[in-house]
């Protein structure tokens, strides 16, 4: 009886470890998947912003909200939050609002410091020159983000699968060692 109960507990523990290991692996993998997905969405949003500024001549607060449509959280939040900050009574400049939005949203995203730099640089000129110049800056940011995205996709292929199997395998290893 007691032996059987002990076996049950051991089995339960092993299953738990297996679960935990797999979960850790998946979380690590999802970081790579999310990063490339979010970069892609960011590029889409900037393309949309480009169209709004160039053909639409839409004013920036509206243009930002329109660019956020059709992409997912948390990237879309970056744009809607900036627009909200601009229309709020705080009297932030465009650059300040953009910086604040980035700082608030960044931790929830899977994006890295390099993208942050690109976006901050872009934010410092956003809105404050003619359409031609705006397009140049937006396109430059897109090119930089695209190269990041290519890297991210490569990493995703290499590491996402690795982490998924590593998690499970690691857990199995621990179980075997413990048994």
């Amino acid at each position: 009886m007691i032996v059987q109960a002990l076996m049950m507990i051991k089995l339960l523990g092993a299953v738990l470890i297996l679960f935990a290991g797999t979960a850790i692996g998946f979380v690590q993998a999802s970081f790579y998947v999310n990063r490339s997905k979010q970069l892609r969405q960011l590029i889409h949003a900037l393309q949309r912003l480009e169209t709004e500024i160039d053909y639409g001549q839409t004013e920036l607060p509206t243009a930002l909200i329109k660019s956020s449509e059709g992409i997912e959280q948390p990237v879309s939040r970056l744009f809607t939050l900036t627009a909200e900050l601009l229309t709020a009574e705080q009297e932030l400049s465009m650059n300040e609002a953009w910086q604040q939005a980035i700082h608030q949203v960044w931790d929830v995203t899977s994006l890295r410091a390099r993208e942050k730099e690109v976006l901050l640089r872009m934010g410092s000129v956003l809105g404050m020159s003619n359409a031609e110049d705006q397009l140049k800056h937006l396109q430059l940011a897109q090119i930089q983000l695209k190269s990041e995205e290519a890297l991210a996709r490569e990493e995703q292929q290499r590491y996402a699968n690795m982490w998924r199997s590593l998690g499970t395998l690691g857990a199995i290893l621990i179980v075997i060692l413990m048994v």
Binding site: I53, Q57, T58, E59, L60, P61, A63, L86, E91, S93, M94, L126, G127, M128, S129, N130, A131, D133, Q134
Partner: peptide, 17 residues
């Protein structure tokens, strides 16, 4: 002055050519 300009143009100098 920069802030004033931003607010006059609603942060969109490009739409004011």
């Amino acid at each position: 002055c920069r802030k004033l300009l931003e607010r006059i143009t609603n942060y969109s100098l490009y739409a004011m050519e």
